[in-house]
Write a protein that binds this DNA or RNA. Structure first.
Lengths: 141, 141
DNA sequence: GTAATTCCTAGTGAAACACTCGGGATTAAT
DNA sequence: ATTAATCCCGAGTGTTTCACTAGGAATTAC
């Protein structure tokens, strides 16, 4: 029941971009250093986030990455879905369809997995990047 | 954010044993057939469940497996922990200690992972095998 | 033009997953 | 006593994913 480092790195990187929101793009190198993440690996993750429409890459000198919308509008769940696929403990209760389960409606565990999925989604979709920034500020007082 | 098939198979196998609780041991072969799980693979999972103290194996002809306690007393979370380790999205918020995170208290995401862990645990530890049996009965009416 | 940056493709070692295989130990029924 | 059913154990295997690394092309500020 683990997220991969992709998810963890991704959230931390997005937190950095959220902290700098409105102040121009942040270069990958800076994000990687601040969060101790391999630069090249993070590059790949940023690619996924860009293709998912969550960040914008600005090329050339003085370039970098920035959020495409305000930290208040980006949910942790969005970031995780872009990097790790559907938030769901098992494919047969994925929201985006294609369950492929033969058992389907007569499965004794389906209800359980749905409840689990919903409780995970509730947490992840009710927390935004802005919330993370606020919490960090509160902690470091 | 997926459980592996270990977890899924394990819960379904335990459900079968719960349905037969008090009626003598169920042979592995029967469980495997009823739930369409590879017999040899399930054998390995039952080994883990046995070592975790959740089931008892009875050897010889007319042998099989049975729960060591009543279905009401076995939580889905117990089964999952035996097969997949701690229920926690990331190791630094594992309940059983050893976090090894340098960032530790000044991490902007720790609070998030704790909330996620707690909401997962709440679902998984409030559902017992008896609940699964009851739900299955309700559905198949 | 040069330096800083994103962007893209490909490769790689380690680990886990989901099995398969073969055989040994134990027990109930005959 | 034999046989058949069953659990128990260890080893091996193909596939996938992870978490990187490497190298270079394209773009842009100065």
């Amino acid at each position: 029941m683990r997220i991969s480092t992709k998810g963890g790195y991704g959230i931390r990187a997005m937190y950095e971009l959220a902290m700098a929101y409105g102040q121009g793009p942040v270069p990958l190198k800076t994000v990687a250093e601040r969060q101790s993440i391999s630069e090249h690996y993070l590059e790949q993750l940023m690619g996924m986030l860009r293709r998912a429409g969550l960040v914008r890459g600005i090329r050339g000198a003085r370039g970098g990455y920035e959020l495409t919308s305000a930290p208040e509008a980006i949910r942790v769940g969005d970031v995780l879905r872009a990097l790790e696929g559907p938030i769901s403990p098992i494919s047969c209760v994925d929201h985006d369809g294609f369950s492929e389960c033969v058992r389907l409606e007569q499965c004794p565990t389906r209800g359980l997995w749905k409840r689990l999925r919903d409780s995970m989604t509730a947490v992840l979709d009710s927390t935004t990047l802005a919330d993370l920034c606020r919490e960090a500020q509160e902690d470091n007082l």
